[in-house]
Simulated scan of single mutants.
Amino acid sequence: MIRTVEEDQHVSAPVLAAYSYCEAVTGRQARNFAYGIRLLPAPKRRAMSALYAFSRRVDDIGDGDLAPEVKTARLDETRAVLDGIREGKVAEDDTDPVAVALAHAAEQFPIPLGGLDELIDGVVMDVRGETYETWEDLKVYCRCVAGAIGRLSLGVFGTEPGARNAERAPEYADTLGLALQLTNILRDIREDAEGGRTYLPADDLAKFGCSAGFSGPRPPAGSDFPGLVHFEVRRARALFAEGYRLLPMLDRRSGACVAAMAGIYRRLLDRIERDPEAVLRGRVSLPGREKAYVAVRGLSGLDARQVSRGTVRRRAR
């Protein structure tokens, strides 16, 4: 994206270089996230890239091939970097561009940096190999790794002056994060199983005869795998419906960013619902042209208006 001189004139060269590094990381690794943040003005886009780059660092530690004790030590080191940012100890000439960019973003926007501590806590759960008996248990994990990202992002977006029920915006941002994470869990069922991870609640797996797990391209013998997927899809849709109440509280471009990211995941959910066993054969994804279409719809406000009309219809019943 082209920046104007006015957008950059109050940002030092070292900080701009740090942001450029974070934007490169985001563009290279954030397949869905990047489509949304392209719609933001430069200061917000840069801040979101800094948040993504730090979050990516945390996720990469959790997903790596290192021994658990090494992962734990590196997560502790990353938390120490976050403490340094909070305490104002990161200088512009620091050799860690992610820390430099995030420190600047936290000065420009009221970002609740504690959300990144929650993200680290969630990755620690992964390192420990935790599993979840119930949806209530899984929600704790989802709130750490995704709900917190929603609340962090809201710190960058802000809410429109005079927005109704703006005090509930963090709650809706958190719920939208849960919707995205549950969609991720459905999409990555086989990949996670091959890595020794199971996220779906044990109660749900037992209910549909899927407790044996997912080690291949076919569901467990005698299971109702489509029933399990459709059950979780309905749960995710309910979370999306609740979380989308955030959109009317945001300015146009921030709302477009959220609508684009959430819209991509909702379309993924549609594909998974139509062919549940596809998630066992490989990763379900959208082509780039469809992601671009969703982004354009978000910028035009179509999704926000649809959500608004849907809210009105629910209230009228």
Score class of each variant (00 low, 15 high):
Asp65Tyr: 00
Leu152Ser: 11
Gly263Lys: 01
Gly27Cys: 01
Pro161Asp: 07
Ala163Thr: 08
Pro112Val: 10
Arg28Pro: 11
Leu299Gly: 03
Ala146Cys: 09
Ala148His: 04
Leu154Cys: 10
Ala256Trp: 02
Arg31Thr: 15
Gly177Leu: 05
Arg245Tyr: 02
Leu247Arg: 00
Ala241Asp: 15
Lys139Tyr: 08
Ala105Phe: 04
Pro201Ile: 05
Phe214Ser: 05
Pro287Glu: 13
His104Phe: 08
Val145Tyr: 00
Ala146Leu: 05
Ala163Leu: 07
Glu6Phe: 13
Ala295Gln: 03
Leu40Ile: 10
Ala103Tyr: 01
Met1Leu: 14
Arg283Glu: 15
Met261Ser: 08
Ile2Met: 11
Val156Pro: 06
Leu246Pro: 15
Met249Cys: 06
Ala24Ser: 04
Val229Asp: 07
Gly177Gln: 07
Leu119Arg: 00
Val100Arg: 01
Ala212Trp: 01
Leu51Ala: 03
Arg128Asn: 11
Leu176Met: 13
Glu167Gly: 09
Glu273Tyr: 03
Ala278Thr: 09
Gly195Asn: 13
Asp60His: 02
Asp137Ser: 08
Met1Cys: 12
Thr134Leu: 01
Ile189Ser: 03
Arg74Asp: 07
Ala256Lys: 04
Ser20Asp: 11
Asp270Ser: 04
Leu40Gln: 09
Pro41Phe: 03
Ile85Ser: 11
Gln181Thr: 13
Gly62Val: 06
Thr26Cys: 08
Gly62Ala: 07
Tyr172Ser: 07
Leu186Gln: 05
Cys257Trp: 00
Leu246Arg: 12
Gly222Leu: 08
Leu75Ala: 03
Leu200Ala: 07
Pro276Tyr: 02
Tyr172Cys: 09
Asp63His: 01
Asp174Thr: 10
Gly147Phe: 01
Ile111Gly: 05
Glu92Phe: 00
Met125Glu: 15
Thr78Arg: 02
Ala42Gly: 13
Leu82Asn: 01
Pro97Trp: 00
Gly122Cys: 10
Ile61Pro: 08
Val90Asp: 06
Ser308Asp: 12
Thr198His: 08
Arg197Leu: 05
Gly84Asp: 15
Cys210Gln: 03
Ala50Thr: 12
Arg234Ser: 13
Asp251Gln: 10
Arg271Glu: 10
Pro170His: 03
Val58Arg: 00
Glu194Trp: 03
Arg297Asn: 13
Ser254Tyr: 00
Leu246His: 13
Lys71Gly: 06
Ser215Ile: 07
Gly209Met: 04
Gln181Val: 10
Asp76Pro: 05
Ile37Gly: 11
Gly209Lys: 07
Arg267Lys: 12
Gly114Asn: 10
Arg164Pro: 06
Arg168Phe: 06
Gly84Arg: 05
His230Gln: 12
Asp63Pro: 09
Pro112Glu: 04
Asn165Ile: 01
Gly27Glu: 02
Ala166Gln: 09
Ser254Thr: 10
Pro14His: 07
Ile61Ser: 05
Leu39Ile: 14
Arg235Cys: 09
Tyr199Asp: 11
Thr175Tyr: 01
Arg86Val: 13
Phe157Thr: 08
Arg143Thr: 09
Pro220His: 04
Ser20Met: 03
Cys22Val: 06
Ala99Phe: 01
Asp192Val: 11
Val145Met: 06
Asp251Thr: 12
Val90Gly: 10
Arg38Val: 10
Gln108Lys: 09
Met1Trp: 06
Ser55Glu: 02
Gln181Asp: 09
Lys44Gln: 14
Arg31Ala: 15
Leu138Ala: 08
Ala304Ser: 14
Val123Lys: 00
Asp65Gly: 03
Arg245Pro: 12
Leu205Met: 05
